[in-house]
Design a protein around this nucleic acid. Structure first.
Lengths: 220, 220
DNA sequence: TTTTTCAATAATGTCGACATTATTAAATTA
DNA sequence: TAATTTAATAATGTCGACATTATTGAAAAA
């Protein structure tokens, strides 16, 4: 992303988001203004503005006069986020199947090819696999054509990131798990291209819920 | 709401939100920091913090070094928001029907009574009617039991407020329209209490989309 | 020893001044 | 006269200082 045109608060927002998601600041940790000022070498205002926006993203919580803390994670929260995600994804997919055209179909086929090819390769880089996985799912719902639903989908995806990281490692290193995952992707594509709406919706909902049990085991 | 424990930024956020929704600052209007400082009698920081959060609410947009503006409204945006709202409400209702218990049922019946009674009265106060209408719909979905979906629902409701104000006036002053509206509420309650999920979902979706056409006519 | 009170410390939240950037208006040139 | 450049003006964005509030730890009382 081009950071040159961003103001300081935006840059701090990106950096802080990344640091929280990557675990530099773990769940529950206090975020002292002074510490953040030193770390990012900026003044008070941009820090507070960035924190304001992180509260809206649910990555940070604050209490008046008591400061800012990284949001806690929990099994309840994990379950709720993934359930909401699966329902929203199902909604978007259903709308996409009803509205999508030729161009949409071709995007799905292209993204599916990229993901399938990479999932078969020898040494899988987690970031690259994640990129292709993300693109495939985005292609599926891209026909839905509702900015707001997309925004909600995007926002839930971000909120799930801290949990997803607990699953990714296992998914790409465990061969059987990756194959099962990949089989679902193929089945999903077939259903979608056949415009078989209800089964596709049910499958995507189950597909998104799959990691939940694995993550539960890895949760602190 | 108790404002005494809020910090200045929170108070400004509430005031600004209200002023934008009520039309004190109409869509597209520039929000000059200096003007806002004078209006609310506070310094720069709380203003900027509140504006940061309003951006997350989609009520304000900003460009680096060019300032802040009230978000524009448009027919496309109206349609998209209401469509997303209707789908999310359908989702919540479906989940509520599957999960709700006795207490949930009783809340619906109570809220329905309050709304029905007031809808029949002589002089209808718009705010009071809106309160009861809101409570009824909230009761319907209250069994859904997903904090995230509720938060999304709430957020979409807020985003639709500027449009909804263009419909409310007409809905409560036009007798026929109010009766038709009220008939839908009753039908909705019956379906929900019979746990007839699919028809209930379809009806709530249509119910929420009803104002769209009326609002389109009243849009500037 | 435990509890309570009170002072010292440290953090947050707010403000106005200053530096940076965009916009507007005037002046110069073609 | 129209277009371009340049200067002025005005707005945004950032910072560090100050006031306010919470927390911590020591001293006194039970």
């Amino acid at each position: 992303m081009d950071t040159s045109k961003q103001n300081t608060a935006s840059k701090i927002l990106d950096a802080l988001t990344s640091d929280i998601i990557q675990g530099v600041f773990p769940p529950g940790e206090k975020l002292q203004i002074k510490t953040l000022k030193d770390r990012y070498k900026v003044g008070t205002s941009p820090i507070r503005e960035a924190l304001s926006q992180l509260i809206a993203k649910d990555l940070v919580v604050s209490e008046n006069q008591k400061g800012f803390y990284v949001s806690n994670i929990s099994i309840d929260d994990l379950t709720d986020i993934y359930q909401a995600r699966s329902k929203i994804e199902g909604l978007c997919l259903d709308m996409a199947i009803k509205k999508g055209g030729d161009f949409w179909e071709s995007k799905i086929i292209a993204a599916s090819h990229l993901l399938a090819k990479y999932s078969k390769s020898e040494n899988i880089d987690m970031d690259e696999w994640q990129n292709r996985h993300f693109s495939f799912h985005e292609a599926l719902v891209s026909g839905c054509n509702s900015p707001r639903l997309f925004q909600i989908r995007q926002s839930l995806y971000e909120k799930s990131t801290r949990y997803r990281n607990l699953w990714l490692q296992e998914n790409v290193t465990n061969y059987e798990r990756l194959q099962a995952n990949q089989n679902e992707h193929v089945a999903l594509m077939v259903l979608v291209l056949e415009r078989d709406s209800m089964p596709a919706q049910k499958l995507i909902e189950a597909h998104i819920m799959t990691p939940v049990e694995i993550i539960k085991k890895n949760l602190p």
